[in-house]
């Protein structure tokens, strides 16, 4: 069984989606995340064990490699696709046993900002690390974040912006969320954002890479 967990973690790390997938070339015609996840379930392994012992292990490696500039957006997206293939098998099991994921993360780009590559990378990485992700998409107003936070008590909110022109909306949205409920944790990110800005607007965490968000969540979510 350990061997299958390792194989599945390897598929996530290197983005092997399923057997027909041509990537990576050195895994041609080998089982991918899709087949191995199904095999583990068939052998009676719980969805939770598969998530914890294989998927998170693989995704964490991707996150660290991305932070260290050893892999880039294409490889991370391939890992996310492999993760999706595995999660498609696991999600029905999670739906039947709520609470089996680590927690909930609500994410969106702030009002006025449509640039979503960074937001999507963070969402994928957080989901791959065992959290339920509520992706509100792009150009999201404060009210929508608050509404989602009401619906998912205890969730952490992630705000993303690429532009200095929309970064200011991050401040307004953070203030609106905090004045609604100051216990909601907010993390921010995006090209122009930094720790000073995070301190200034009263957000709880700034991270320059997705793995930083995962580490913040692991510390924050009980």
């Amino acid at each position: 069984m350990e061997e299958l967990f390792e194989q599945l973690a390897y598929c996530i790390e290197y983005g092997k989606i399923n057997k027909p997938s041509p990537f990576p070339p050195d895994m041609k015609d080998k089982d991918g995340a899709d087949e191995i996840t199904q095999q583990l379930l068939n052998e009676g392994i719980s969805a939770d064990d598969i998530l914890q012992k294989a998927l998170i292990v693989g995704m964490e490696k991707v996150g660290v490699k991305f932070r260290e500039n050893k892999v880039f957006v294409p490889q991370v997206l391939m890992s996310a696709k492999a993760m999706d293939a595995a999660m498609a098998h696991l999600k029905p099991h999670f739906a039947n046993s709520p609470g089996s994921q680590k927690g909930t993360f609500i994410i969106g780009t702030v009002e006025g900002d449509l640039h979503d590559i960074g937001k999507n990378l963070v969402a994928m990485m957080v989901e791959g690390n065992g959290y339920e992700v509520i992706d509100l998409g792009t150009d999201v107003k404060a009210e929508k974040f608050i509404e989602a936070a009401e619906q998912y008590p205890g969730a952490v909110i992630g705000l993303s912006a690429l532009l200095t022109t929309t970064m200011n909306n991050m401040e307004e949205i953070t203030k609106a969320i905090k004045s609604h409920n100051r216990n909601i944790a907010i993390c921010i990110g995006g090209a122009p954002v930094n720790q000073d800005f995070c301190d200034k607007i009263g957000a709880d965490s700034y991270n320059p890479d997705p793995q930083g968000v995962v580490e913040f969540l692991n510390k924050t979510v009980e």
């Binding site: 983005g15 997938s21 041509p22 990537f23 990576p24 957006v73 294409p74 490889q75 997206l77 391939m78 696709k81 590559i117 999507n120």
Partner: peptide, 11 residues
């Protein structure tokens, strides 16, 4: 955009 990045690997 997403397809473009995946295409490098897949196609």
């Amino acid at each position: 955009m997403e397809n473009a990045f995946l295409d490098f690997m897949m196609y």
